[in-house]
Nucleic acid binder design. Structure first.
Lengths: 254, 254
DNA sequence: CTCGACTGTTGCATTATGTGCAACGGTCAT
DNA sequence: ATGACCGTTGCACATAATGCAACAGTCGAG
């Protein structure tokens, strides 16, 4: 809609791939060097872009700070956090909180396992959308048309033999998840890692977030992990209650 | 330099404070609603801004993804990570890696403590620059003029009784740190938490990053933590060697 | 149920604004 | 010393962003 801003913003994903010099940026934007220079300067003034010692540009520090701040201001996250911690204390495994936004699912909070073997994940990182238990819950709640459309434009990478292979299987799985109100991922992303997940709902019943407990096979079997399902669901419901204002928050008297 | 981009980017920190509607954005930018709308639309197309169900805008998911990607592409981080993990395995405490950029110090990597009592910190979050051990190392390496200028424009919050109170004390501390080549923070940020830190240097000897080991009093005393100093320094030196290309990286034959 | 106030949205004329060009200056390798 | 290369600046031109005013949709009050 706004050409100048559009061009400037296009620089960011470009730099995310790795540092680049002025010429490279200008080329990939299809503009004159001087134009690229001015755009980069403006980005630089706002701290979004950093000029390293070899004169090349890369993404800047303020980007991290912004992402941080934004995350900390998410109210679901704030409300959910103590519940996640408590859940982690009682079961010991890794606990995740995730939201759906613009065709992506991302982790917005995480409490690390107390066991030495941990799974790799990072707050802010997009989730493997076709297999993760939290993603299933979030997508299962989308309007049918949107869900179908999204399912069809997704890629279905075969992380493991148990990964969901195509749109058809995925939609079927989403229907099941939608029906039962919880989801699992049994080795669909990493061969040895299983997850159980439950939805957090807003006052209108829509799923606003999803939380999961993950653990590797070497710590507990899938069956053992499944015994945690009631606890996970209870925790998610507690968060839902607080988020939708049904449960009064202690320390905030009316 | 570029007015349009400048305005558009000014929206981001504004939204980081919390969601805002069109009118508020327009007001705070000092522009007409229609221009604010167009700017927001462009930001939206790039995924930097998200429109929540109540029509208000907040920062979008791609921001996180960008920050993530940028972080993972930092070569210091990539090189350092295995060393940090190894250090954590041998001492058990929280290990941090931080860099300086544009008057801020931020954590770019972290390995969590194996002890149940942990300190709060988050990757990407700006560090308490006046007290953190890693910050001291990074600032101590700045050119004298820049160091002095920065020290004088900083705030000196009194987190604890042992926090550094003013520019004068800070510059003196930086001089010491510069001299000795390592730094500590003994309860200057959180009363019960101590840190030992060492610098990572590039081929030219300049400090490119700093790493630290942190632990609460309840786990080890400050004296005990200090016995780890040689180990921390050796780890930092190992990273320096690899980063500056002196140590060949295994698996990457010449 | 109607009215009015408010917020977001669109089309358009004005001109401020961003653009490409060409020329300059510095750095590095030959 | 020389030339090629990259970043930088000033300027004339026209594109592209701006503010205006009018429209549409939503909500709450009377």
């Amino acid at each position: 809609m706004s050409q100048t801003v559009d061009r400037a913003l296009s620089i960011l994903p470009l730099l995310a791939e790795g540092p680049a010099d002025l010429g490279q940026v200008a080329d990939r934007l299809g503009v004159h060097k001087s134009t690229a220079l001015r755009l980069l300067r403006t980005l630089h003034e706002h701290g979004l872009v950093y000029r390293q010692s070899d004169q090349r540009y890369r993404l800047g520090a303020r980007l991290f700070a912004l992402a941080q701040e934004a995350m900390e201001n998410l109210d679901i996250r704030e409300i959910a956090h103590p519940h996640l911690v408590r859940l982690n204390e009682s079961c010991g495994h890794t606990v995740h909180l995730a939201v759906y936004e613009e065709k992506e699912v991302l982790y917005i909070d995480k409490v690390e396992s107390r066991y030495p073997v941990r799974m790799y994940s990072r707050i802010g990182k997009p989730v493997a959308i076709t297999v993760a238990a939290v993603a299933k819950l979030l997508l299962a709640d989308l309007p049918a048309a949107e869900r179908r459309a999204l399912a069809e434009q997704l890629d279905y990478p075969l992380y493991t033999a148990r990964s969901i292979p195509n749109a058809e299987a995925f939609l079927k799985e989403l229907a099941t998840v939608r029906e039962q109100g919880w989801a699992t991922d049994l080795g669909g992303h990493e061969e040895s890692i299983n997850c159980v997940a439950a939805p957090v709902r807003g006052a209108d019943g829509r799923v606003v977030a999803a939380m999961s407990v993950s653990a590797p096979n070497v710590v507990v079997t899938a069956e053992e992990l499944l015994t945690l399902l009631p606890l996970v669901r209870r925790t998610a419901d507690a968060i839902s209650g607080e988020y939708s204002g049904r449960t009064p928050v202690k320390g905030t008297p009316a």
